[in-house]
């Protein structure tokens, strides 16, 4: 540029025009992408706002004390009662039962995939797990109602109700197996190979290497996997509503019908409850409670996962 003073070459000008155009396009893309990011944040904030404000309206009518400590949930029937504990009990009963099913099978699958399976077996099994995760949840609910309860549970234990916790827990458990298996597999594979070699050289069998070195070393990854699956089980709606029914009940009996937080929200949303009424507002209070539970679990899970990543860095 200095060499051809006062007489810039056409080439140079072309370059500059091009650069300007590219810059301009890049700015546009940048802003568009920012808008996308903003949209998802605004949506989330909007949802939280609606939840919070409607819940606030609800709590002007019903004291939080009654809501969180009351043991009877009957917002639609006289005499009304707004104790949410039966719904929380139903939710945790189903989700806890699901973990009982999913933790052993999911962890076993994870150990098999990372420590035992040959590469080609793994190459087949991993996609199958993902298909399992992709089955619509309503199908699981239908399966619980038409197969597990009448064909499996009732022949074994005749007093099982048509809608019951056990069948819901089993199908939700199956539903979250892929999450646990896949996250455990990732956590196990992140354990350095040198630790396995150390154990083999110390006369350990493959099972001892898996259970006494790999699993303990990946423990926080396993805990995080279980927590994330737990959050999913708590938020699960369709299968649970179909399988466990709609009877709010403070019980520990897995053969009885219960109602979960999500199940109640479906029930009211599908009914013809007029907006603005107290019945209508209950679903926002339930939604808020559900949101806080899953949020807490997710935060704890991510904390645990982060600690796990730091161990090998």
């Amino acid at each position: 540029m200095v060499l051809v003073q006062g007489e810039p070459s056409t080439d140079d000008e072309g370059d500059r025009a091009m650069t300007t155009r590219v810059r301009w396009a890049e700015q546009l893309i940048r802003h568009a992408l920012f808008a996308c990011a903003l949209l998802s944040i605004v949506t989330t904030a909007g949802i939280v706002w609606v939840l919070a404000s409607e819940s606030f309206a609800f709590f002007r009518e019903v004291s939080p004390f009654e809501f969180f400590l009351g043991t009877r949930w009957a917002p639609l029937l006289e005499p009304r009662s707004f104790g949410i504990l039966p719904l929380i009990c139903g939710t945790f009963l189903v989700a806890g039962g699901a973990l009982l099913v999913a933790i052993p099978i999911g962890m076993g699958t994870g150990i098999y995939l990372s420590e035992y399976a040959r590469p080609w077996v793994r190459g087949i099994l991993k996609p199958i797990l993902e298909i399992l995760a992709g089955i619509p949840t309503v199908v699981y609910g239908y399966f619980a109602l038409t197969f597990i309860t009448p064909q499996v549970l009732r022949p074994l234990i005749p007093q099982t109700e048509i809608f019951n916790v056990a069948s819901a827990a089993i199908v939700v458990g199956v539903m979250i197996i892929p999450t646990i298996a896949s996250l455990c597999d990732d956590a196990f594979r992140a354990v350095p190979r040198t630790l396995r070699e150390a154990a083999y050289a110390l006369s350990a069998t493959r099972l001892e290497v898996s259970t006494r070195v790999v699993v303990p070393a990946a423990m926080s990854g396993v805990v995080a996997a279980v927590l994330l699956a737990f959050a999913r089980a708590i938020g699960e709606t369709m299968a649970v509503t179909l399988a466990a029914g709609m009877t709010p009940k403070l019980t520990l009996n897995p053969l009885e019908s219960v109602q979960t937080l999500t199940g109640y929200i479906v029930q009211v949303s599908l009914g013809d409850t007029p907006a603005g009424t107290i019945e209508y507002q209950t679903i926002f209070a339930c939604g808020m409670t559900l949101f806080l539970i899953t949020l807490t679990i997710n935060i704890v899970a991510h904390r645990v996962l982060k600690r796990f990543r730091e161990v090998y860095e």
Partner: peptide
Amino acid sequence: RLKIGMVFQRPNPF
């Protein structure tokens, strides 16, 4: 491997 132990290139304690 009970009779023949091994020490590796990089220290690899559990």
